[in-house]
Design a protein around this nucleic acid. Structure first.
Length: 803
RNA sequence: GCCCGGGUGGUGGAAUUGGUAUACACGCACGACUUAAAAUCGUGUGCCAUAAGGCUUGAGGGUUCGAGUCCCUCCCCGGGCACCA
């Protein structure tokens, strides 16, 4: 028996569209459930089977939640700013807008073919001016609140993309997009003060139902360390060196200071007349460091280099010892105070440094082999000897604070977010530079500020955006004083549009065009936020997922939204690899497109197989023969549908039915789609054994199957004489009573090894079971002539004799 | 180096609180149908052994009547972080 999948797919997709089956009722009375996919960048290549994995999961879950009585918001949109369309424009002269439109059309066609239950009426596109007027509006608010500022400083520059990058976009010193070696360059930039939110971004992670690994990555990225800044006087000149440390308790072991080569003191001695014996040497080392790339400098394997500043000594504030001052490139200029107190006995790096340059290593914490990093009892620390190091931290700090030689301090690895790009295809930053009024944001009524039309998209490479070459765009009037002024020409990064898009889907339910102001949407936000379930790839851990949380917290602060976090529960889908576990790639020619699978087997086989492949968060490999197994499953269901009759079911079948309801329900809740499907298969196999399938049971089965194979389920539902849509039916409920077995197989163990199984009735007590068991020939054979020392009886499960 | 995941048949993968390891699916073998093949259906399928039985969840040890599951030591694979003081 076979069925025409493509006919069924089309029929039901048309039906759903025409009867608006999945339109979200904005002001529904039901409890809401917001189920969101990370929206895609519509690339020219289209989808491969890896993309829809997350989408299938959220779609299955959305159906499940609808059937359980929730009003589900399940939207889709396009994150369409970005370099590929722009690079394509540079090559071909075709405007990115055109390319993006074409790609979206293709993506949408592919997604529709899978039959997702998106409410397409709420579709958004980040490059649509009606959308990005809001991105610009939020930027203006950030600017007004002092959270967006202009800055010129050395930032990461990708020479290939010809634009500045955020720290988050640099991976091992390479550009996250194109893998080019990133350089440092001084460019005027717009920077967002994400560091102001560092503590809240860190603390609020606790309340999120996210994978622990993603939370950990964000914690590491924020990199909070609590400690103190300690002040060392320089003996020869009037200068204080401040260092940041998390271990004030080791201060007596600080046998030298190390400064980054770009430290202020180094600049000072190079420019001023201070009596330094080895000025040339210091100058050379400093120069050499500048030439090193970040990658070279942070290479852990390399030896510790450095130069002593001969002629200067620092004074340790706690014991007044005079200690040498070094410069070395293992100390980073941009972190903490750009200098450290070196405690070689209790820090690996300082230990290496001391070994290499014959510096004093003095144990001050007892506890293990030098270098010993842990806590312990303080020694060689004057009045603090014998104190536990945890207590010593406090004690030393208190002493120094009194003398004004130290203050408590917190440091973060997280830096402010470099937010401007020197490229064409992004949201223009809505600011104007005016000679009188300095920097002035556009008025709300002047938004959106659209991108100017041009033929030339090439980045200039000079640190200026291509927009700066377009005079009609650059020259404008100041919104405040109306005099001639110039527009800001940098654009926003890729990540801007995705920082708030989950709000736009709610807004679209309120107003088609998302008109200003935000206050119009407050009630809707209150109803629909937060996103209850958010699904996407793990690669956005410290990019989109961090940036969006930052913007959301800002919007919370200015009263737009009333929940602290945007995404309550997060799930990451695992990668889908090609046959044999190799990565799918064009060059290997092993890319499988969902279109192929749909053409051959239909959308539901694709959906089922993607969910059956393995654990949702695990990396899995595609297999062609595996796909055909799913096809067989559906064909067998179709066969069973032919046997549906009004007959009274057996107790056994009833039990299995209710077990299946129970299993599928709990599995879907836990995102264990693979085992949910396998239990559906088991029930279907039970139906196959029956001459006639009880109609009532079969209908329950189809309802359970519907979220996984919606087209097919609708068709069978109709075929057995029910009215569509099965997806509008309620979710079946299991009844505990019906899951009880009348008789049990009891495992009989001798010394913990299984020797026999016997069948007993429900609720039999130990003595009765034992009596039964001892009748068994197999058991007799093992027990004969032995003494039973102990009996363990687990009701309904097993009996174990120890002999 | 540090922090998370993992390691189960030929393959993808299942196993509530410790209680029949290998569900479900793929593959394979044999049989039926067929002139034949494909498809389909049926049977079998962890390993060793003719059998009785023995062995088996990366390796070794421990706790327990009983361990894939708990504890200790180690190996391997995947991911993340990594001079952040």
């Amino acid at each position: 028996m076979s069925y025409d999948a493509s006919k069924i797919d089309k029929k039901w997709q048309k039906y759903w569209e025409e009867s608006s089956t999945f339109k979200t009722k904005h002001d529904s009375e039901k409890d809401k459930f917001y189920c969101l996919d990370m929206f895609p960048y519509p690339s020219g290549e289209g989808l491969h089977v890896g993309h829809p994995r997350g989408y299938v999961a959220t779609d299955t879950f959305s159906h499940f939640q609808r059937m359980r009585g929730f009003e589900v918001l399940h939207p889709m949109g396009w994150d369409a700013f970005g370099l590929p369309a722009e690079n394509y424009a540079i090559k071909t002269g075709i405007h990115p807008k055109i390319t993006v439109e074409k790609n979206i059309e293709n993506f949408k066609k592919q997604l529709r073919a899978i039959g997702f239950s998106y409410d397409w009426e709420r579709e958004i596109n980040t490059t649509d001016p009606e959308y990005f007027k809001w991105t610009q509006w939020i930027f203006i608010k950030l600017f007004e609140k002092g959270l967006a500022y202009e800055d010129t400083r050395p930032i990461n520059w990708c020479p290939s993309c010809k634009t500045g990058l955020a720290n988050e976009e640099v991976v091992n010193g390479l550009c996250d997009r194109c893998d080019a070696q990133v350089e440092k360059k001084d460019i005027r930039q717009w920077v967002l003060r994400i560091t102001k939110y560092a503590d809240r971004l860190l603390e609020d992670l606790e309340e999120l139902d996210w994978p622990e690994s993603i939370k950990e990555m964000q914690r590491n990225w924020i990199g909070k360390s609590v400690g103190a800044e300690i002040n060392f006087k320089v003996k020869e000149i009037n200068y204080d060196i401040e260092v940041f440390t998390t271990r004030p308790d080791t201060l007596f072991g600080a046998t030298f200071l190390v400064l980054a080569p770009e430290h202020d003191l180094v600049k000072k001695i190079l420019s001023k007349d201070v009596n330094i014996e080895n000025l040339e040497e210091i100058k050379n080392y400093s120069e050499k460091t500048k030439k090193k790339s970040e990658l070279e400098r942070t290479d852990l394997a390399k030896e510790k280099t450095g130069v002593e500043i001969k002629g200067l000594k620092a004074i340790n504030p706690v014991n007044k010892e005079e200690i040498p001052i070094w410069i070395a490139d293992y100390v980073l200029g941009f972190y903490g105070k750009g200098g450290i107190m070196s405690v070689p006995a209790h820090d690996d790096r300082d230990y290496e440094m001391a070994k290499k340059h014959n510096l004093e290593i003095r144990e001050v914490i007892k506890g293990g082999e030098i270098p010993y990093i842990g806590e312990g009892e303080m020694v060689n620390s004057g009045e603090f000897n014998g104190m536990k190091s945890e207590k010593g931290k406090e004690a030393i700090l208190e002493l120094l604070e009194k003398e004004k030689r130290a203050k408590r301090a917190v440091n973060y690895k997280l830096g402010d977010w470099v937010f401007s790009r020197q490229r064409y295809w992004g949201e223009p930053i809505p600011l104007v530079h005016c000679e009188n009024c300095k920097i002035v944001p556009l008025n709300e009524e002047d938004l959106p500020l659209k991108l100017p039309e041009t033929e030339k998209y090439e980045p200039t490479g000079t640190g200026e955006s291509p927009l700066s070459k377009i005079e009609s765009f650059v020259n404008t009037k100041c919104p405040k004083c109306k005099k001639d002024a110039k527009r800001e020409t940098n654009t926003m990064p890729q990540w801007a549009g995705s920082c708030w898009y989950y709000l736009s889907f709610i807004m679209r339910g309120e107003k088609e065009n998302m008109e200003f102001p935000f206050s119009e949407y407050k009630k809707s936000f209150e109803k629909w936020l937060p996103v209850d379930l958010y699904v996407g790839g793990a690669e956005h851990a410290v990019l989109h997922l961090l940036y969006a949380r930052f913007w959301h917290k800002f919007l919370y602060d200015i009263g737009v939204v009333s929940v602290k976090e945007p995404f309550k529960k997060l799930k990451n889908q695992g990668l889908i690899m090609g046959e044999g576990g190799v990565k799918m790639s064009k060059s290997k020619g092993n890319v499988i497109s969902p279109d192929q699978v749909i053409k051959e087997h239909g959308a539901d086989v694709l959906r089922l197989y993607e969910m059956f492949l393995g654990g949702f968060e695990d990396k899995v490999s595609w297999s062609e023969t595996g796909v055909s197994g799913m096809r067989r499953f559906l064909e067998k269901v179709e066969e069973n549908s032919q046997k549906v009759k009004e007959v009274s079911p057996s107790k056994n079948l009833e039990r299995i039915l209710h077990e299946t309801i129970e299993k599928v329900t709990s599995d879907v809740k836990e995102f264990k789609f693979n085992t949910a499907i396998s239990s559906l298969m088991i029930l279907n196999n039970e139906f196959r054994k029956e001459k006639e399938v009880p109609r009532e049971f079969f209908l329950v089965f189809i309802r359970l199957l519907a979220p996984f194979a919606p087209h097919f389920a609708e068709e069978i539902w109709e075929e057995v004489g029910e009215k569509p849509s099965v997806l509008k039916q309620s979710w079946p409920e299991s009844i505990k009573e019906k899951m009880k077995k009348e008789s049990f197989s009891i495992i009989v163990q001798i010394n913990g090894r299984v020797r026999d199984t016997i069948t007993v009735n429900q609720g039999e007590d130990k003595e009765k079971v034992k009596e039964e068991v001892l009748k068994s020939e197999k058991v007799k054979k093992w027990i004969e002539g032995k003494e039973i020392k102990k009996e363990i009886f687990v009701p309904g499960k097993l009996i174990n004799f120890v002999i």
